[in-house]
Design a protein around this nucleic acid. Structure first.
Lengths: 214, 214
DNA sequence: TCCAAAGCTGAAGGTTCCTTCATCTAAACA
DNA sequence: TGTTTAGATGAAGGAACCTTCAGCTTTGGA
């Protein structure tokens, strides 16, 4: 019977044996697969369990409800992208602003393009009420990290790093989305990435006092 | 009983008397209101009908199913934005590229910001399977119209108008989205619009041969 | 080898909500 | 005023699907 879903969205059981960790992983992967193949509207917990090769009951041992399952999938995906961005944010501290911009674009786009179908399918999760909060949080976090990176730019910013980060990430998101909903994202990647570099470079040049030769 | 929904998403009855046209309008408005207040997940046809001050049966006289209702709402919203963009695309033919860019930003942002809650709520509709097709089509159309506009720029483009339009619209979309999911979009509008102008101007300057003074 | 804990099962309960249709009311028109 | 047609009603049918739980199987250690 559908109860009023408990607001705790943590797994109800934490894996202790190794096999159950594998089960959780299988369920999470299956959720993505089902999402990709039938879409969020027609995704059912039974379908996900089947795809994972377990029974529904097992699914509910690790996720209190369907929404929690979807949120976990989204978090996992977001975490992958965050990790990529975090990584280059550490690597490029104190570099030149244009280098940072280029590295950011590369990292973000390749993370999103690693699995196109998955990234595209998760947009539907990130726009319902539960998913939106996660997406917003991830966005805010990314913005903060990138702003901190920009603040270390060797040239020195003439603007608030926060707003510069906001604009760059917004442009990046806009292009990613456009890319992911294209008929053939792979084909469009190269030209759009190139052009995005131009866009971001042109903008970043307005954020520093002295303009470098290239 | 839920039948296999007919794939024709046209209204099943075309209003002939004036009152029924008013009814359709009320239903469409109510759909938006319910969407804003409870979200797509908890929107039900009965709720929409109640809000519109009619019975469910009436709703089903004009929309074959729930999905069609949502699609009609989305189309209506998209059409509003399209109209704004189309309008400035006619008005600014043969103007300078930078003028076009500024006008486009103004038109697009003010159309989206006219009703913030509505625009934000409709993102959830435009990411399910049915809505996505509509959103994609609207995006493609917008891109085409803007590319045609850019092609008339007085300076003459050094790049494919299509890709220039793609980038500008992607950036515009990215910033809109960021704006609409902010805690207080109204407060952020002015600074982000300003910065978006800088971003787009910087980019458009790379798309023409001779650079104007300002 | 045996037991306790962890993990797994899946039929069934129960709720939600879409959709229909027989019937009623209002409008247009002769 | 009577008739026809458009428009509106809302209770009820019934599909879909989330979630539970009593019992079964597997694992790991004593």
């Amino acid at each position: 019977m559908p109860t009023t879903s408990p607001r705790t969205l943590q797994p109800r059981k934490t894996p202790v044996q190794e096999r159950s960790a594998a089960t959780v992983d299988a369920i999470l992967q299956a959720a993505i697969q089902v999402l990709v193949s039938v879409g969020k509207e027609r995704l059912t917990t039974t379908l996900v369990a089947m795809r994972a090769g377990v029974s529904v009951g097992t699914l509910y041992q690790y996720f209190p409800n369907k929404s929690a399952l979807l949120q976990a999938s989204l978090k996992r995906h977001m975490h992958g992208v965050s990790t990529s961005v975090d990584h280059i944010c550490k690597e490029y501290r104190s570099a030149s602003l244009l280098t940072m911009g280029a590295a950011l674009i590369d990292a973000y786009l390749s993370a999103k393009m690693r699995n196109v179908k998955e990234s595209a399918a998760l947009y539907s999760v990130s726009s319902d009420l539960d998913g939106l909060a996660i997406a917003k949080a991830a966005g805010a976090r990314g913005r903060r990290v990138v702003a901190e990176l920009f603040a270390t730019a060797s040239e020195g910013l003439t603007k608030d790093p926060e707003i510069v980060a906001t604009m760059v990430m917004a442009a990046l998101n806009g292009v990613s989305r456009r890319l992911l909903e294209a008929k053939s994202p792979e084909r469009e990647l190269a030209p759009l990435r190139e052009e995005l570099l131009v866009l971001v470079r042109g903008y970043l040049l307005t954020c520093i006092a002295t303009k470098p030769a290239i």
